[in-house]
Amino acid sequence: MTVKHDITAHIIAEYLPGTPVEELDSSYDLLENGVISSLELLRLIAWLSDRYDIPFADLEISPDDFRSVGAIEKVVTRFEGLPAAE
């Protein structure tokens, strides 16, 4: 399973139940369209941190990094496996 598919499947399971995976376009704006609220964004970041071992607390990120599946995929591939700052 690719990172993109994994993220898409998680977003659908958590925030868009019943939507076929292939129907969520990777550029669909999750924030603007109300799929993910600010609280849900925190939950998503926690899941990504656990799933991909990303120390988000140590990184400079913005909501735009989580605006779409494509944006999230870029963040994950850029930061996956980085060691936490000490």
Rank of each mutant, 00 (worst) to 15 (best):
Y28W: 10
S62Q: 11
P63I: 11
I7G: 01
E60D: 14
V76E: 03
F56Y: 13
S68F: 01
T8S: 12
E40A: 14
Y28Q: 10
V35M: 01
G18A: 07
N33R: 13
I7P: 00
V3G: 03
T77W: 04
L59K: 03
N33E: 15
D53R: 15
W47L: 08
V35K: 04
F56I: 08
I72E: 02
T8F: 02
T19Q: 12
A71F: 02
S38H: 09
I12S: 06
Y15K: 09
L44M: 13
R67T: 11
V21W: 01
V3A: 13
E22F: 08
I72L: 06
F66Q: 05
L82W: 08
R51S: 09
S49V: 07
L31C: 03
K4H: 10
I11H: 01
E86L: 10
L41D: 07
V69K: 04
P55W: 09
L41P: 00
S37I: 06
D50M: 07
A85C: 08
A84M: 04
V21A: 10
E80L: 08
L41W: 04
D25E: 14
V69M: 03
W47F: 13
I61H: 08
G18H: 07
P20Q: 12
S26L: 10
E40I: 06
A84W: 01
E73M: 06
T77D: 14
S49A: 14
A71R: 15
H10S: 03
I12L: 02
R67D: 07
L39Y: 11
I36H: 01
F79R: 06
T19K: 14
E32K: 14
F79H: 15
E80V: 10
A71I: 01
D65T: 11
E23P: 03
L31K: 07
G34T: 08
P17Y: 03
P17E: 00
S49N: 09
S49W: 05
R78V: 02
E23S: 15
I36G: 02
I7K: 00
E60G: 08
F56K: 04
I54R: 00
K4Q: 15
P55S: 12
P63S: 08
G34M: 05
D64I: 05
D25Q: 12
Y15V: 03
A46I: 12
R43G: 09
E73T: 13
S68D: 05
P17W: 04
I11D: 00
P83C: 04
I36K: 00
A57D: 11
S38I: 05
R78K: 14
E73G: 00
D65I: 05
E73C: 08
A9C: 04
V75T: 15
I45A: 03
I72G: 00
A85H: 11
I61V: 12
I45T: 04
Y15P: 00
V76C: 02
K74D: 12
I36Y: 02
S68A: 12
A71C: 07
S27L: 08
V76S: 02
L39M: 14
G81P: 06
I11E: 03
S38R: 12
T19H: 11
